[in-house]
Design a protein around this nucleic acid. Structure first.
Lengths: 249, 249
DNA sequence: TCATTTTGTGACGGTGCGTCACAGTATAGG
DNA sequence: CCTATACTGTGACGCACCGTCACAAAATGA
């Protein structure tokens, strides 16, 4: 009698169910609406049961963020498969990020909220680990791109370690979306042609600065970005935020 | 009889007093400790009075952030006055930011928390405006540097508008500190030589990429950064977070 | 069938928010 | 100096949410 296994499975399924509920709340009313109270009221389990899965409210947000980050990683992987040359792929990554951010501003809000409070204290070690792993898988994508570029001879020397460069790329990307999504008016105030254009310009500068070939002088990345935007829109849209996307089956 | 004026002055003084209290709470117990409840309990005014000044809790955080941003702007201005050449000054700005971030991690937390929730709804228009102005004054510093570089012929052409470039610089800087201060373990996991070194490397890449002279090949910015770090430490420390720093007198 | 273990519950004490009717105090006019 | 009026300050109140815990219900297996 596999009682043990069945119990474990049911537990996982219920967690997925609860996270689906949380996702609904997030989409309908924003992250502040994700409360233990409402989760219990809307779903079929009482508050006490919720605390069998999550140590606290932040733990729910953390688990939710984890799903999202995994989803982003999958989305990026798919987007990158559309082009071949390493620098084109970097651009594809930026474009995909941008499209995703436009479709799911709440995702970034979630990330910010988690960064703002100190997680480590109250969140369960399990969910924290899971989130960290998910983040690693996103970073791994950038890192693989750098590896590819070096192999193919498009990127000769780096002034810093590959890890540090990976980190810098991600950092710049997320920082930009933070400012933009944090205050939608910011873009207007600063006469930024558009969030996208700005990001690509920054990316161009960094990549040119580091000598990642073909340099922007040798290839029309603006045009490429435009066409990628067309091409990737449906791909990104497929990774929407509807509940269950990343649930176990 | 300047009754009107006196009242207005007293009002401003009380607001400063309340923000001093909030700062104490922030320093002692973190931003979650800043509640209307405790502010009223610790200070000499009742809750109802607090709501004469602030529309809600977030409004307090907003006003507090405003003070901080102004303080950072002042600090940066001072730091930049230590060197003359434009690109050196950019480096000084990065170093100053870094030193400040190390000394006041709570500042960044505050910024993140404000970006995570939608301010515009509940925060008073006054405080929001003030915060926006404060931010502008920080951006203005970066922008002035770009102006200087162009005037002096150290920066020929930009692939984007000056505003966009300014924005990109700030963005990258803040994004990095977000990731680092959000999760102190991140640095360790990624074998980042150090947060500073990483930031400077990124800055170097961007500045080289955009052709801001002298290029890093022509000048030892690593050594300059190290010496700036020594030189600026006491300057930055002077702009500490003790209450009243930015109060009206 | 029933003792035992596991799972699920929701009432409870506590904290914090934002409001509002009222108490207290200053101002100015008589 | 007194009083009517306007302004300022208050804290109790209703509400929402958190996280806990003693107990109820159900599943297990002997």
């Amino acid at each position: 009698m596999g009682t043990r296994e069945r119990r474990a499975r049911e537990f996982r399924e219920r967690e997925a169910y609860l996270l689906d509920l949380a996702t609904e709340l997030l989409l309908e009313q924003g992250q502040d609406a994700i409360t233990m109270e409402r989760l219990a009221a809307r779903g079929e389990y009482a508050k006490g049961t919720l605390y069998k899965h999550f140590t606290c409210r932040e733990d729910v947000l953390c688990a939710l963020a984890c799903r999202r980050v995994n989803n982003i990683a999958a989305m990026l992987a798919q987007a990158l498969s559309q082009v071949t040359r390493s620098r084109d792929r970097v651009l594809a990554m930026f474009v995909a990020y941008e499209l995703y951010a436009a479709q799911h501003p709440e995702d970034f809000r979630l990330t910010l909220a988690l960064s703002a409070g100190s997680l480590t204290d109250r969140v369960s070690a399990d969910h924290l680990d899971e989130l960290e792993n998910a983040r690693q898988s996103v970073f791994a994508i950038s890192k693989a791109l750098i590896g590819q570029a070096r192999e193919e001879g498009d990127l000769a020397a780096l002034p810093v370690s590959e890890d540090a460069f990976t980190f810098a790329l991600e950092t710049a990307c997320q920082g930009s979306y933070m400012l933009v999504s944090g205050d939608p008016e910011l873009r207007r105030r600063w006469n930024l042609p558009s969030g996208e254009e700005n990001m690509h310009a920054l990316a161009s500068m960094v990549l040119d600065g580091v000598g990642w070939r073909p340099l922007s002088a040798d290839r029309d990345y603006t045009a490429l970005a435009a066409s990628l935007r067309q091409q990737l829109a449906p791909v990104v849209a497929r990774f929407s935020m509807n509940p269950g996307t990343t649930s176990a089956t």
